[in-house]
Amino acid sequence: MTHLAHNYHPLPVIIGAGEGAWVTDGEGTRYLDCLAAYSAVNFGHRNPQLTAVAHEQLDRVTLVSRAFENDALGPFADALAELCGTDMVLPMNTGAEAVETGIKVARAWGYRVKEVAAEQANIVVMSGNFHGRTTTIVSFSDDADARTDFGPFTPGFRTVPFGDIGALAASVDANTVAVLLEPIQGEAGVIVPPEGYLRAVRELCTAQNVLMIADEIQSGLGRTGTTFACDREGVAPDLYLLGKALGGGIVPVSAVVGSESVLGVLQPGEHGSTFGGNPLAAAVGHEVVRMLRTGEFQKRARVLGDILDARLADLVGAGIVAYRRVGLWAGIDIDPQLATGREVCERLAARRVLAKDTHDSTIRIAPPLVIEQADLEWAVDQLAAVLAELRA
């Protein structure tokens, strides 16, 4: 691995195979995956329903570019639009591309529909946000690691505290074209806004003729116990930004989904992607939508999430300072006097549980939604054992 750029600091585990919620290294040691590639593997490693569709498409055609039509893309777009309760889909590849696309669409809509003066559009974002690592996106990050030495930055963004509807209302003016937010902030440590906040954002955006853009790249597609995190408050944004789990852990698939009145502002030649909407991605994405329609995975996230919640509650004061849990997704604040989040994750890996730290003393738990209850409880047992070791 010495020839790789040092833009990651992975745990010393080399994974060679995976099935369901488990992965295996080259020596045959099995690890319980409690990260699920940041929710990209919501449906488990090598989900047989998804791999069957991928194999079938691999035997037909995988890429033709958007210069031509392909027979997998239309059905995928129809199904995804229906899942989101709207009528237009713009397919891309990565989550960051979906965010960049949402920004471009919001600006075009602002100039062409809202009639904001040229070059004056602004977008309001949230403190603690994580939407990706492109130059434009890090321009409105407040994470020093994401920003330092990468300027000059793209103008046109205003940052307000996440969860503070008064600050958001004060920041919106006649040139505001969109409010961009994660309904639950994942990278920040699974930060959940106050009850009613998303409804208030929706009402404010409607009243001020501003687009509400929900980055559901991590929070969407079953993770929170609902199809989308916005569903928890009965809110429908103007644009959904989707990715990660949309590719089933097989291929990068992302999408911007919204109404024709918004996405329809783009004209041929103004935006695109060679791989966006490719037949393989469309076939896999379509099957992901079919799987979500059953509600099975959303229910598993709710049921197993309640079990995770009860187990974590027992550890508060025993090495855990606090935690936040929505569906099968938790941000756990380790007592900084005991260890950093990295140190806890290293000790968990030694016990064959894979998790990820963030922001010094916080770790995240987000296993595949197919995880068995006994395995989930075993993972919490290992966390409890690590905390006991550190306290000893």
Rank of each mutant, 00 (worst) to 15 (best):
A281Q: 13
H359W: 15
N209R: 10
T294K: 03
E377R: 03
S141V: 13
H131T: 02
V370Y: 00
N209S: 09
V179T: 13
G277S: 08
E296C: 04
G341T: 14
Y197V: 00
H45K: 07
V190C: 09
Q218F: 03
P183Q: 04
E389D: 15
R30H: 05
A379S: 02
E100C: 08
T206H: 03
R202L: 01
R158A: 15
D87G: 13
P48N: 15
E389N: 07
I14A: 14
A178M: 10
P10F: 05
T340W: 09
V105N: 10
I217K: 00
A366M: 02
Q337I: 13
T51P: 10
H3E: 10
G189Y: 01
E377I: 02
Q49T: 12
G220E: 02
A245W: 03
S273G: 12
L211E: 00
T29A: 09
G285F: 01
G247M: 05
S259D: 11
A350P: 02
G26F: 14
A144M: 11
A37W: 02
N93H: 10
A282N: 05
E115W: 07
I15M: 02
I217F: 00
A207H: 01
R391P: 11
V99A: 07
A349D: 06
T51K: 15
A77W: 03
P193L: 00
D78C: 07
V116M: 11
S261M: 10
W329M: 12
I365Y: 04
L11N: 12
G128N: 06
G110R: 09
G258K: 13
L211Y: 01
A385G: 10
L239I: 04
A170T: 15
V380H: 07
T2S: 06
A350C: 09
A236Q: 12
D375E: 00
G272C: 10
R352C: 11
V257W: 01
V179I: 08
V125A: 15
D375L: 00
V89H: 04
V160W: 12
E19R: 09
A310T: 12
G26P: 07
A54D: 07
V284D: 05
R232T: 15
L241D: 00
D142E: 14
G95Y: 08
P152H: 11
R342L: 08
